[in-house]
Design a protein around this nucleic acid. Sequence first.
DNA 1: CCTATTTACTTGTAGTGTCAAGTAAATGCT
DNA 2: AGCATTTACTTGACACTACAAGTAAATAGG
Lengths: 167, 167
Amino acid sequence: MRTRWLDDAELDAWVRFIAVVELLPGVLDTQLRRDSDLTHFEYYVLAMLSEAPDRTLRMTHLAARTNATLARLSHVVSRLEARGLVRRTPCPEDGRATNASLTEDGWAAVVAAAPGHVETVRSHVFDALRPEQVDQLREIATALLTKLDPEGRMTTPYRRPRAGAAR
Amino acid sequence: MRTRWLDDAELDAWVRFIAVVELLPGVLDTQLRRDSDLTHFEYYVLAMLSEAPDRTLRMTHLAARTNATLARLSHVVSRLEARGLVRRTPCPEDGRATNASLTEDGWAAVVAAAPGHVETVRSHVFDALRPEQVDQLREIATALLTKLDPEGRMTTPYRRPRAGAAR
DNA sequence: CCTATTTACTTGTAGTGTCAAGTAAATGCT
DNA sequence: AGCATTTACTTGACACTACAAGTAAATAGG
């Protein structure tokens, strides 16, 4: 089957988009590490827990919400647990499952980290976009996720939290 | 200064966009690793060299084009050199600088890897987007790069290559 | 021209992510 | 009920990236 190469418009979009994908994580990690001693992924894990009922989620669900593999999450939760930010407890309903919960220190860490993180997101992302571009970005991301995440693991309808992701 | 929190539309866009940013590299890496024994970053390095005059670029320029730090690039080039895909030569004009060039094997590797890679990009990204969304994505990415890459290191005007990035 | 600074890397170490394998509990089949 | 399979993790080894420090050549200042 012949390759369907990219045309000029697609290629131009792709080169820039890839650059964004390469650069954005570094920007987020650098700020969070400097100000809060957290990686962006660690922050995101804490933030997702902070929004969950009882600040608790099963590892599988937490992995889905953070777009991570279980293996990656397990390692990260181990580290966060060692730092006292998260606690693991066996799930009563299912003997195979583990619940991860935010500790008080963990809660304090997200609350402390959130403003600086949100400011970074705003200044590096949303300040550059017009309101209609925010909508376009949402639609484009939604479209891409149907291909990148066909099972729609993380496509849980969004509920507004009291703190977290970028509240 | 009070935190400028994200509104609902921004938050929704952000959660999905972050998911894309987390998932896309994995998709690209998995395909390239499986079919061509290359990471996406390694592929991109080879692709950028394949488009350069003489298939050669100074490390600093190659780093700029691949959105990487010099340290990261240096490690990767060492590995590619060990595999015979790239060759390092001291730059005649500047004693501090190093030129990286694609070898014949390196060229063969990009040419072999390109169709599968492009097919992945097409099926996971562009097939999900309408033509106007491709333009929107390009404009959004361009806008974000002004914040993420203020020096405009990688914003070199694009020339169509004979093979490479996603030709 | 001689020294200070900047530029262009390279390298070692330490932290993170991936992959493969392993464990244990729940589910499905007959 | 009993065995096979699937699910839900955990763990260890290895690969890759980031950060910090080091080297060497070019440039800039006095």
